[in-house]
């Protein structure tokens, strides 16, 4: 998809994909025949540049076709560069500007509570993204409003656009920071399916407070030359790199 588009974000897609597969396969309540079903769970992909990961999952679950997926970033495609609810069935948020998704998810959670609905709201953010002040405004508000059905996943892959997070502006102990904001927090290995599944279950059943899963991941997971390599935050693989990537991932 990214190779065909000649642009995109492979690193943060590969760090998030295990989490997304588990979420869609095991937890998220949706109806592919009725993507706008009012009582579906919501998934807010705040790190919208990792759209290839989302589109891959939407393809696997039947929301979009292979042709849709391969038209990624091309004119008229339902697969826009960053995930966009206006363009794609099964997408609940228009991302692309970091730091906004948790606020949007909080709005969804408050509306659900007013409607006495038990729908869960899931939000995924990147660790570089939480440098945005708005994220912490939302974190504080979620605690104040006891948004128990708001579930956050932090993709802690330690790399952002320009370089490693620790060199740009280290975000430190994310779990303890969220905890001090009143959140229930669990830290996991974001590539251990067993830990992911168990954490998603813990998060969805804990409705007394907003919950966060801090998932320690590897940027570019599964492709040797992309792993932990800031160069592949936002760069498409060339022909040779694509071949190696597909071989290693298979």
């Amino acid at each position: 998809m990214i190779h065909s588009a000649g642009a995109g974000h492979p690193g943060g897609s590969l760090s998030a994909i295990d989490l997304l597969v588990a979420l869609y396969g095991n937890k998220l309540r949706f109806d592919v025949e009725n993507p706008d079903w009012e009582d579906r769970d919501r998934f807010v992909m705040s790190k919208g540049h990792a759209s290839p990961a989302v589109y891959s999952v939407l393809y696997e679950f039947g929301f979009i076709s292979e042709d849709d997926m391969m038209s990624f970033r091309k004119m008229g495609s339902v697969c826009q560069g960053h995930v966009d609810m206006k363009w794609t069935d099964g997408v609940d948020f228009s991302a692309g500007s970091l730091g906004m998704g948790l606020s949007f998810g909080l709005g969804c959670a408050l509306a659900a509570r007013m409607d006495s609905s038990d729908r869960d709201i899931w939000v995924m953010v990147g660790d570089g993204e939480i440098q945005e002040g708005q994220f912490w405004e939302a974190a504080m508000a979620a605690d104040f409003h006891s948004a128990g059905r708001l579930n956050l996943i932090v993709d802690r892959n330690r790399i952002q656009n320009d370089d490693f997070v620790e060199s740009q502006m280290e975000v430190g102990n994310v779990a303890s920071k969220l905890s001090s904001f009143g959140w229930e927090v669990m830290e996991i290995d974001g590539h251990s399916m067993e830990e992911i599944v168990s954490a998603l279950e813990w998060s969805s059943t804990n409705i007394s407070a907003p919950t966060a899963i801090v998932a320690h991941t590897t940027k570019g997971k599964g492709v040797s030359f992309m792993e932990n390599n800031p160069s592949f935050h936002g760069k498409a693989p060339n022909d040779e790199e694509l071949e190696i990537s597909l071989e290693e991932l298979s």
């Binding site: 906004m100 606020s103 709005g107 959670a109 002040g133 939302a138 508000a141 104040f144």
Partner: peptide, 18 residues
């Protein structure tokens, strides 16, 4: 609270939910 950016996206999330 005094957090306008958050308020606008909370509103947007609520609008998306009817």
């Amino acid at each position: 609270g005094i957090a306008e950016q958050n308020m606008i996206l909370v509103a947007s999330g609520m609008a998306s939910s009817g």
